[in-house]
């Protein structure tokens, strides 16, 4: 595999974790640290010029947004190294973490008493996204799979880590932030049926946490309406 030969220059052994839509994700030891390698391999279905442009842009946007978030105090994986030739990002493996998606699913299955805990989590997500948008970072692919919970040893509250910034970009437009929340809303409600209340909590805490939120929520309402009003002829 082409990816493996590129990687083998940098790491001894790489285990494929998953093949997402964005690329392959490997787990490896890099410079002595447990590392996640995200490789955007060539998509043969795309025109080569378009493919190269998109792949390069996304690699650059991903690492830029990670740094911008970290500077603002939003946890995101540390970038160790970027190879712009093979479009590989080498970053910190978030040890002992699980996705918010898995956490919600397992909590819902376990029992209903944990409803309060999930609401607190939703509120925390709302606060963090508000902070991210205040930094003008648009994530571009917000889902509960792209948020990790890292168990910290000392305090009880686990750390929320945002990942997968491949579709991210910088914008101060309320429209872009509103669409970002719309993408999350759809992913959230389709991955977790009957969680409208939970998502409402998330939006409430988003609204409270950012001074710029009224314009964003207004756009979110507009985008939702566009979906319902579309005539869908043909």
């Amino acid at each position: 595999m082409a990816g493996q030969t590129t990687l083998s220059r940098f790491v001894g052994k790489a285990d494929l974790v998953k093949q997402g839509a964005e690329g392959r994700v490997y787990r490896a030891q890099f410079l002595g640290k447990p590392t996640i390698v995200k490789e955007r391999f060539r998509k043969r279905y795309r025109h080569p010029v378009l493919d190269e442009k998109l792949t390069h842009r996304r690699t650059v946007q991903e690492v830029r947004s990670i740094l911008r978030c970290r500077r603002a105090g939003i946890s995101a994986p540390v970038v160790y190294f970027v190879d712009y030739t093979s479009h590989c990002i080498f970053m910190e493996e978030i040890a002992g973490s699980s996705t918010v998606r898995d956490h919600i699913v397992s909590t819902q299955q376990a029992n209903s008493c944990k409803e309060l805990e999930l609401q607190q989590l939703a509120e925390r997500i709302g606060r963090i996204l508000a902070k991210m948008h205040d930094e003008d970072v648009i994530h571009g692919d917000l889902t509960t799979s792209n948020m990790l919970l890292r168990c910290s040893s000392q305090d009880t509250e686990s750390d929320l880590v945002l990942i997968d910034f491949g579709l991210s970009y910088i914008s101060s437009l309320p429209e872009d932030k509103g669409v970002d929340l719309y993408v999350l809303e759809k992913a959230f409600l389709s991955s977790h049926p009957n969680t409208n209340v939970l998502f409402e909590k998330l939006l409430q805490s988003y609204t409270k946490s950012s001074k710029k939120s009224p314009a964003v929520i207004k756009k979110l309402d507009e985008v939702r309406l566009r979906g319902r009003k579309r005539s869908m002829v043909g």
Binding site: I66, L67, G73, S75, V78, V79, Y80, F81, E92
Partner: peptide
Amino acid sequence: EKCGPLLDAVVCRMAI
């Protein structure tokens, strides 16, 4: 600095 150790912050900037 609340996100993690100073080393992480430094390395991340070097890489990017």
